[in-house]
Amino acid sequence: MARNTHFQFKQFTVQQDQCAMKVCTDACVLGAWVDVENADRILDIGSGTGLLSLMVAQRNTYAAIDAVEIEAEAFYQAGENVENSPFNGRITLFHAAIQDFTSEHLYDLIITNPPFFQSDLRSPAGKVNLAHHAEALDFVSLLASIKRLLAPEGRFVILLPVDEGNQFRKMAAEQNWRLDQELTLFHQTDKKAFRVLMEFRNAASPTRDTVTETLNIYQEDGITHDPKFRELLKDFYLKF
């Protein structure tokens, strides 16, 4: 996906020139895939440009959405994006680390596209490190924050690279979270999987079988979008 200064969706625009994390295809898949039904209160951890909050607000027309972002420039740009959207009355932004964030409410749904490199080469740019690396938010801190803020019957959904997803899945199981749904994302059929999207809930919730799916962005030619991908993003992408 091109790194333009803005990205135009069907119902809103995401300005992104001040954000280390630009609009990317995998985040768009998360925003379109996550189950937003029966969620009155939604929390977006590490909101960046505000993309996920905006996508969720388009799909769920009644939820109150809180979005938390630690990096100052991303926080202010997300504020611009939300203010200029049709959903500005339902999205509230907070400039804070999630570890320090408090709320009067527990959340029915938590969504997050977190810093994911637990141990990797660091960028010289500080805000890039905050966006890509788990310096300010490791998995232990993230799970602790989710446990504190999620309603007992609530769900949380996370997007990660495959290797980090395997680490996180194991850690979540050890902390009594149950994997309910999993979507593995491929560029195309003959390529390795590059992202995994996972939905968890408290293991004490009624038992259900884990639903596992795969999604290709492109068909085998690497150019034509896969029909399932087009169907998922048709309410958002102008070209669909």
Rank of each mutant, 00 (worst) to 15 (best):
V34A: 10
R122P: 01
Y76P: 04
L51N: 04
Q18T: 03
F12C: 08
N81V: 05
N202G: 05
E199V: 10
I111D: 01
D40H: 14
T61R: 15
I110F: 13
K192G: 06
T13G: 00
R90V: 03
G50P: 05
P115M: 03
R3E: 12
V23C: 02
F87V: 01
G48K: 03
A172K: 07
T189F: 03
V14T: 06
A78H: 10
F12D: 01
G89Q: 12
N216I: 14
L30N: 01
E73F: 04
E231V: 13
A74K: 05
Q181F: 07
L130V: 01
T212E: 15
F240Q: 00
D66C: 08
A136Y: 12
P114E: 11
T13I: 14
D120N: 05
T112A: 13
S145Y: 11
K239E: 08
Q77C: 03
D44Y: 10
Q188E: 04
T112D: 09
W177S: 09
V162N: 10
F229S: 02
R41V: 00
R155E: 09
E174Y: 01
F101T: 00
F236V: 04
N38A: 12
D163R: 10
V140P: 06
W177F: 14
C19T: 11
P114M: 12
V128A: 07
A63Y: 14
I223S: 00
F168W: 13
L185F: 11
E69G: 06
N113Q: 10
S53P: 08
